[in-house]
Each structure stands twice: as C-alpha cells, then as structure tokens.
C-alpha cells in the first residue's frame, strides 16, 4: 500500500475553513492553521491570509514535526495515550498546537492578553467539528482531478527541463 491520500472536495474545504474562521474570531487569534501529520498545509485564516510573509507550508511542516515528536516522546516514556497538545509561550504571543484525531494538527497563534482557557475551550469544540468533516473527506472517493492524465506527466517533464 502507498501512503494514504487526502482528497478534499470544495465543500469539505469550505467547511474546514468555516471552522477555522470561527475559532479565530472566538479566540481573537492572530492566525489559525490546519495541517495534516505529514506536514501538508490544509487551510488557515487570520494574519496568515493577509501577510504573505508567513510561510504557511514551512509552518505546517514544522508544526506537524513538532507534534509528531511529542507522540514519540509519549511512546518512549511509556505514556499510552498520545500527548495531544503543546503550548509555546513568547513575550507577546503564544502558539497552541492541538492534535486532531491523530491525523491532523491545529495551530493557533494568539496574543498573551487572550485567556488560555478560552483558547482551550474553543479549540476543543473546533477539533470535534473538524474531525467530523475530515473523517468524511478520508472516506470520500472522488474521481481523479481533471487534467491529471497522460499528457500531464509529459508536460510536467518539459516544464522541469525549462525550470531546472
């Protein structure tokens, strides 16, 4: 078997983004981001969208690696359940990482003036909603995206010859 594929429909992605938007508004977060455990950026909102300077792909890879590390630490230290969240406290802002069903990672960056208990509460509610949508996405079998045919490989190969 190959690595599992995640194929999100337009509607499912809209549902995910609505959850992220709500969480950002409820917690007044600077930004919110969702990645899968392999580090693929799924969606985000807040300053992520208005500031191109934030590299969401790199943030996703780092967040996924971060939570994966804590899982491995849990295993090595004999903790049966996964460590499900991480909190980093900075001088002005904090970053909160939460596991979403073992397959995704939710990241919230918020000012230190925001109450952490509010972040925890709203994050937990969002995680439950996201799990439902993402579970459906995993179960959905969609036809291959239009354009991914035999020509695609050839065109990609010539594009690479030109680009590299």
């Amino acid at each position: 078997m190959l690595s599992p594929r995640l194929d999100i429909t337009v509607e499912q992605l809209a549902g995910v983004e609505k959850c992220l938007d709500n969480l950002q508004q409820e917690t007044e977060a600077r930004w919110v981001l969702l990645t899968d455990v392999t580090g693929q950026f799924i969606g985000g909102c807040g300053l992520l969208c208005s500031m191109n300077s934030l590299n969401v792909e790199a943030l996703s890879a780092l967040a996924a690696g971060n939570l994966a590390t804590t899982r491995e630490m849990a295993r090595l230290t004999g903790e049966e359940a996964r460590f499900k969240l991480l909190l980093y406290e900075g001088d002005c802002q904090s970053v909160y990482l939460s596991d979403v069903g073992g397959e995704f990672v939710l990241v919230i960056a918020f000012d230190n003036s925001v109450s952490i208990s509010a972040v925890r509460l709203y994050t937990k509610q969002t995680v439950d909603r996201l799990q439902e949508i993402l579970h459906r996405a995993r179960a959905t079998v969609s036809p291959p995206p239009v354009g991914l045919d035999e020509d695609f490989g050839q065109l990609l190969a010539s594009e690479m010859e030109f680009s590299f």
């Binding site: 594929r5 392999t38 969609s142």
Partner: peptide, 14 residues
Amino acid sequence: MFINRRLRELNLKI
C-alpha cells in the same frame, strides 16, 4: 499526497 480541489493543487512529499 494532498489534493486541494478548490485551489486545484496536488501536494506531493519526497
């Protein structure tokens, strides 16, 4: 692999 159908992105990990 992650396929984002709205943005028509094909994300692959090597």
